[in-house]
Every structure is written in C-alpha cells, then in structure tokens.
Design a protein around this nucleic acid. Structure first.
Lengths: 198, 198
DNA sequence: GTCTATATGTCGATAGAC
DNA sequence: GTCTATCGACATATAGAC
C-alpha cells in the first residue's frame, strides 16, 4: 500500500472514529506513518484528503448494498434480506453519518459522493419495490418511491435510535417493524408465511 | 437574560450550526457577548457547557413532540399529525444529530439527555400505536414497540436522506411512505378515507 | 460575577533541502 | 516523493485583579 493509499485509509478510519472536525492532520500522519511533507505532496489540505476518504467509503459500501437488492429471485425476499442483514447498529453508517456533520453537509463537494451513493441505493430499492408490487407481493396502494425512501430512512434512523440508547435493539426493532408492516399490508396474506400460490 | 443563559443559547446555536468539535469557546464568547472570565466562572470547560446546551435542546423539543402524541381523540389521527407536521428536513433534528457525533456518542454524560428524550418519545409513540391497535385502526399483527421504533426511525433517517440530497423531498416521501403503508395495512380499509363505521 | 492578561499546546499549512 | 524545520493562528484553558 503506497503513501497516498495509507493516508486515505487513516483519514477514513479517523473520520469514522472521531468525526471530520475532530480529526487532525497530525493524527492522520501518525496513524498512516506518512511524513508531513508527503501528506501535503499528495493532498493540498485536510479537506481534499477527507474528500478522497469519503469517496473511498462510498465505494466500499455501495456495491454490497446494491448487490443485495439486485439478486435474481423473489423481490420481497430481497427486501427481507435488505432489512435483516447484519449491520453495526451501534457504529452507524459510515456514509449516512456524514450528512449530520455540518462541516460536511455545508460543503457541496464533500457531500457529492454521499448524495450519489444514496441516490444509487434509492434507485435499486425502488426497482425492487416496483417488482414486488407487480408480483402482488406489496399493495398497489403504495408508491414505490415513497416506500423506498421509507425503507432507507428506517435503517438510517435506526442507527440514531440505537446509538442514543447505546443498545442495538431499537435498530433491530425498527427494521423488524418495517418488515412486519410490509407483510401486514401485503395483498396476499399467504405471502407472509409461504410462497404465494399462483 | 443573564450571562449563563446567554452562554447556553450561544453554545446550543453553534453546536447546531457547526457541530460540537468545530465549535470553539472563543466563538461562544463572541456570540454570547460574555467575557472569558465569566465563561469559565459559569462552566468548568467546553464539555460542561455543551452538556447544558444539550439539555436545553432536549427540553425545547421534547414537550412539543409528546404533546402531539398526547392529544385526546383518534390515535391514528395523532400518528398522521406526527408524520405530517412541518419539520425542517434540510436542517435535521437538533437532538438526533448529536448521536452521529462520535465525541458526543462516546461520552455517556453528553448522551444521557438525548437518550432520555428518545426514550420519552418512544413511550408516547408506542402508547398511541397500542391505542390504535385496540381500536382496530392498525393490524394486530404489528408489534407496537417495533412500529414505534420504525416511525421514529423514519423521521430521523428522513433527515439523513434529505440532507444527502440537499432536497426536502426524500424526507417528505419517507414520512408519506410510512403513512401509506400504515393505511394499507389497516384491518378496516375504510379507515383510509373516512372514519370507520362501528 | 466580570474583567484583562497570559500560558501551553495543537491546528493546518508552508519552506526548502534531499 | 519524502524528509525536517518552521510558521502564524487558534484552542482551551488559568491567573489574579476588580
């Protein structure tokens, strides 16, 4: 791993552990083992390093999420996987958390990769919901875009509740609640327990 | 307004505008118009001032939320109000945002008022959901605690999506989606449009 | 309770040799 | 590309008079 890469990894980790404002160039240097001169050779300043770190985080997380939603097979089942896969409730989302840092949210350049990642997840989610509606697994009374936003919000907001309580259960309950409600609203109640007949 | 109060207000505003780590005692002094000596007379340090500011924010926001949920009358209608009342999608939640700041989330003392506020909202929400289930407005297949967590998460996560997109619509869509799904899962479909008969 | 003055360290970056 | 040295500014307080 070259110096540039080590700097990006260290910055990414530190933004995750301490936040953007609270992370100093010095810590990045120390953790990466890269010297002062090298750091400013590779990046004009802290913000540019943060941008590279953010882009890296998005590139790390996005493919796995989209992949879960792009599997072949039953769309409702893909939503179940989306809502039940293991996620670090007490650590939060490396990407979503950045929206709550005013220094990041106030900087269009830093926010851009985050916005792109959420937009991509939304498109995948909305597609799956549309498929599920077409198959009669979800009520036609539901708007696919709205439901997709709701599902993504359940995850992101679940982190907030879990961290506030210092307990993963609110996160798990929120996701389970979304799933329960989704199933309770299904046009074919049989879909809850077993594959629908026909 | 005395010095102490002015300090707390300034700190509260600055944590809101810039975050905790990015807010310096100097800015607090300048905005509040309180001198250096007075500041350290009233508070031992930045953290203690932040704690007072957090407690104030919680005390500001909690009553209004609980009040919405504690109105007399139809419980489902109270959930509708909870999910449709005007909220600042692009600004986020003064209380919820704090959970995403590692310096706050890693400090049990700072997190305590936030945890208490979310716990209080959850209790109110879960009570309303239980009432709605008892009246047959929401399916008995739904667990009240889970649904309550899901609804709170929808709001908190909606902020994340809206700020990422720099557009209030994901927030509004997420809330509307929750409402739509709630209605689609209602045991008495008539409840969607008009008061249920009987 | 409020003020001015001071202290110590770090931040975020630059300089310039190798 | 990497190094050491250095910079001016600010962060986070403390001291001690009034």
């Amino acid at each position: 791993m070259d110096s540039r890469e080590r700097l990006v990894v260290a910055m990414s980790d530190l933004m995750w552990e301490r936040g953007y404002a609270a992370t100093s160039p010095r810590e990045v240097r120390e953790r990466s083992g890269v010297g002062q001169g090298s750091m400013y050779h590779h990046f004009p300043g802290k913000r540019d390093l943060a941008l590279a770190a953010l882009e890296r985080n998005c590139a790390d997380l996005l493919p796995a999420t989209v992949e879960v939603l792009s599997q072949p097979g039953d769309p409702l089942e893909r939503l179940v996987v989306y809502l039940t896969r293991p996620l670090p409730a007490l650590k939060g989302c490396k990407v979503g958390r950045m929206t709550q840092d005013p220094l990041v949210a106030g900087d269009a350049g830093l926010l851009a990769p985050v916005a792109a990642a959420f937009a991509a997840v939304h498109e995948s989610l909305a597609d799956v919901v549309r498929e599920a509606i077409a198959l009669g697994e979800i009520s036609e009374a539901v708007d696919p875009d709205r439901l997709a936003y709701m599902l993504a919000a359940t995850i992101q907001g679940g982190y907030v509740l879990a961290i506030a309580a210092q307990d993963p259960r609110p996160f798990e309950h929120a996701r389970a609640g979304a799933l329960e409600l989704l199933r309770a609203s299904s046009p074919s109640p049989a879909a809850h327990a077993a594959p629908a007949a026909g």
